[in-house]
Each structure stands twice: as structure tokens, then as C-alpha cells.
Amino acid sequence: MTHSVPESVPRPAAAPRRKPGYRFNLVGIIGLSVLLFWAVIAVIAPWVIPYPVGEIVDYDALGPMTAKFWLGTDYLGRDILSRVLMGARYTVGISLASVTLACSLGVTLGMIAAVSGGWLDTLLSRFLDAMNSIPSKLFGLVVVAAVGSSLPVLVLTMAVIYVPGSFRFARALAVNINTMDFVTAARIRGERTPYLILSEILPNILGPVLADLGLRFVFTVLLLSGLSFLGLGVQPPYADWGAMVRENIGGLAFGAPAVIFPCVAIATLTISVNLLIDNLPQKIRDRSDA
């Protein structure tokens, strides 16, 4: 008997098919609505903000919530509401871009590794597992230290950070599917690897893979905010939510709205995605892994 190390291998979900009565529950709907809200804001922000983001509109820095400035003002006297709405563009946009990149690459490599097996699988798994053992924030720090921070660097760095995890997740799912008789049947029909991946494996792992993408989106938002908070993420004059917390940290001692609302924005986004995933109609096993 040889037993490998038990890992939290996700189970493939049953047929991803919409059936009558296939509904989101209440918590799921709330999560979805908040997520959609931020997505829409990210798109339309420039047209709905009450004041230009860079303009100093009030001489009272770190001001309270007033009728004129709904969410108060920041350390320079700029309108927080406008900056939070515009910040959605950076936080949501950058995170979405890099998580999409990471997951497409990770899932594709994972399926190839699972279907091919042999040395290619061993090589990819070893290498990416090793990459996985560099803490994500640390990797960000090192890269930013070496090349400086810009939007493309941020997107690529965070994509590289989450490829190994996505690879590992997709590979585990694909390995399970790969042992199923229908893949064997296709293989001895004479089908080639691209067909096996696209037609036999992918449709059966799509549900969990999308849920995983959601989870990884949350990790990316957290990482981006963390890096920005350390001053290594989005650089002035632009500001995502993490950078806004950093700018206004001086107001923390007296609980200025300028510190609180960017935090609230991050929390609503990430919590809503997590709630959505936990309440997906399809039963997808939740997993906690970075």
C-alpha cells in the first residue's frame, strides 16, 4: 500500500446544468448584488463622481461627513466619495485583470499536466509547487524592490503569484476527471490532447474553477490593497483603496471617515464575493488555500 500525503483535493461537481429550481439563496443574492454594484461603479465612475479626484475642495483636511462631502475629506482636503468611487477602477480592474491572467494560465497548464502525466506533469508540479512556497506578499515586495511599481508590473506580478495555486487546484480536479472511464474511452478512440482537454475535462471542472477564480480574486484584492498600503502598489497621483488607507492613516487616531470608508469599500467587495461563492446554488466544496 502506498498512500500519498492526503491533500484537500476538491471533488468535481456534478453536471453543471441549470435545472428548474436552480436558484441563488438570499445571502447569495446579496453577495451578487454588491459585487455587481462595484463592477458597475468601476465602469461608470468618471461620470458619477461629484468632484474631480485630484482637486482640493475643502481646506479642512480629514474632515467629517457633511451634506456637501458625504464621506468627508482626505488628508489634503479632497473628496473621499469621489476618490472611493474612482478607486474601484483600480482595485477591481487590476485585480480582475491579473486574476483572469493567472487562472487562464494556471488552469490550462493544470489540465495539460493532468492529461499528459509523466515527466511533464512532474516537472510542472515540482516547479510550481516550489513557487507556491514563496509567501505572496514577499514576492510582491521583492519584485517591486527590483523593478519598481507600475500598473503592468502589478498585474503581471500578481498573476505570477497566483498561477501556482490555480494550477494546483485545476490539476487536482483534472486528475480526478482524467481517471474517469469517459476520458479513457475518448483516449482509446484515438482523440488527441487538445480535444481531451477542451471537450472532456474542461466542461466538467468549469464550475469549481469559476468558484476558485472568485476566491483568488479576493486574495488578489487583499494582496493589492496590502501592497498599496505598504506604498508598493498603485502610486500617486492615482490611488486604489489600499493606497487611500495609507494616505489617510494619520486620521486613524481619531477615527476619520477618510480611513474608514476605503476599508469599508474593500470589505464589502471581498465579503460579498466570499458570500456569493459560499452560497452558489451548485454545491461546490469550499476550500481555504492561498
Binding site: 479576493v218 487583499l222 490593497s225 496590502g226 498600503f229 489600499g242 488607507v245 492613516i249 486613524l252 480611513v259 476599508c263 474593500i266 470589505a267 471581498t270 465579503i271 464575493v273 466570499n274 458570500l275 459560499d278 481555504s288
Partner: peptide
């Protein structure tokens, strides 16, 4: 869920 959804700096603040 709430705690793992928010950044560490927010827990700190």
C-alpha cells in the same frame, strides 16, 4: 468569512 475577507491592515486599523 468576514475576517479572511478583509486585509490585515484593516484588522489592525
Amino acid at each position: 468569512i468576514g475576517l479572511i475577507s478583509i486585509p490585515e491592515f484593516m484588522v489592525a486599523t
